[in-house]
Design a binder for these strands. Structure first.
Lengths: 247, 247
DNA sequence: GGCACTTTGTGCGCGTATTCACAAAGGCTT
DNA sequence: AAGCCTTTGTGAATACGCGCACAAAGTGCC
């Protein structure tokens, strides 16, 4: 089985940065650029941690993985830190992105400013729907997915963003991987199966809502409110799933 | 400090389900409904785990938190499991959602089928832009954010989806929280500060791309490629990787 | 130059998550 | 009914992440 949605990237004992830290670096970076725009030159771990919504010890430990870029008694130089984090994340180079699937979501992604501002260049919009192909969106012309391999090769696409319907996602994924892409950002509500060496990150709107609903249910009725599975609780399929008792 | 983006919900030693498990339940649920549609009646932990992209032992342990709903030697009854997970997640009741910010992303969210299909009803679309207010989107008329409190009260909104520009997000968040909403799904690229008891989940497209870029860089150049901060490596001072301004 | 103050970097303990591996449990065949 | 085969549920070991608390290091005042 080749599916590895959640690969641990730190198998090697090299100077690997913990995955949890990597996930927070972009948050720090955003907070730092905000400070930079306001002309702040140095910042303490306490201040930056507050801006990023994390514990200050965690922030310091995270930054320590990049090397020692702070000055005791003073704090961190904002500009320097911005540079170091950008470099670590690979944002000092440009990344070429293709968006496959130009429905509502794909359109929103194509117009999303947060991409371009961080060194991500959208080099292609592709869709299988003839009615959409040829449309001009955010200054780009939508191409047919038949040309997927060409677009990837011609522009040197290294990251594919999949925003197709669920049914088409795995097929598209297989094709982009075959074309050499090793990083995929998946918005389709399916678990993609990819070979080793390919990274998939998933963004799933509906899952986030379901997690919120779980906690909301907890809050609403208290820990014991759990619709106690009364008789009117109509389980699916007529089968009475009553007396769900747990240890 | 009130910011608690990452609250641990299991402070109480009650029958709490681990957060990591909660986050996976929606994935299992999706895989199960897929099986259900294909007429599969029972499924083993091995099969379901493969479909969900996780380890089978983890799946079994996750499900064990809901109680013991499997049959040794056979597996799990799909329909039964769908019901139990749905109930646990609170999907057997309807959740009323309001979307604030009807730009590209808000529009995509309004039209996203994955909401309605899981018991999430979008009861309001709101925007501060007069040019957008009044537009009909996905069968709903966009209202002005001035009416935010009214919409929340009138429809009994319990989950707010914030899809505004970054600068407006905290203000909107404060208002929905003041109006009684305790669950927020945030798409704006800012860290929201909320009082205790309010849950915030964040979806950030640009962060996901940055994480991919980090790993892509690793793969591309090997572990030692790190542009070793050579002389031409633009030390802080000549800032060019700045700009920002998202959403 | 010395001293008091600030802030970083990190050792350590704790709780959580993941995975293995196996005994217990149920079904099916003969 | 007995025995074999499959699959669950979970104890135990390991890995990981978090946050406290403090020593080390640097600044700036006097």
């Amino acid at each position: 089985m080749t599916s590895r949605q959640n690969r641990n990237h730190r198998d090697r004992a090299d100077r690997g940065i913990p995955e949890a830290t990597v996930a927070r670096l972009p948050v720090y970076l955003r907070a730092l650029t905000g400070l930079q725009e306001r002309g702040v030159a140095t910042v303490s771990s306490e201040e930056l941690a507050a801006a990023a919504g994390v514990n200050s010890a965690k922030l310091r430990k995270d930054l320590s993985h990049l090397g020692s870029y702070g000055t005791r008694g003073v704090g961190y130089e904002v500009e320097y830190l911005v540079y170091q984090i950008s470099r670590e994340l690979g944002l000092t180079q440009d990344w070429v992105v293709a968006i496959i699937g130009v429905g509502n979501l794909g359109r929103a992604l194509a117009g999303y400013g947060g991409f371009a501002s961080r060194g991500f260049r959208v080099a292609g919009l592709l869709d299988a729907d003839e009615a959409i192909v040829g449309q001009e969106i955010s200054g780009m012309t939508v191409e047919h997915t038949d040309r997927l391999e060409d677009v990837i090769a011609d522009h040197g696409v290294s990251i594919a963003v999949i925003a197709t319907p669920a049914a088409a996602a795995q097929g598209v994924c297989d094709r982009v991987v075959a074309a050499g892409v090793t990083s995929v950002l998946n918005f389709a509500p399916v678990v993609l199966s990819v070979p080793d060496g390919v990274d998939v990150r998933k963004v799933d709107l509906s899952i986030e809502l379901q997690i919120l609903a779980f906690h909301e249910q907890r809050k609403a009725g208290g820990p014991d409110d759990y619709a106690p599975l009364a008789s009117g609780d109509a389980p699916p399929g007529a089968t009475q799933y009553v007396e769900a008792v747990e240890a």
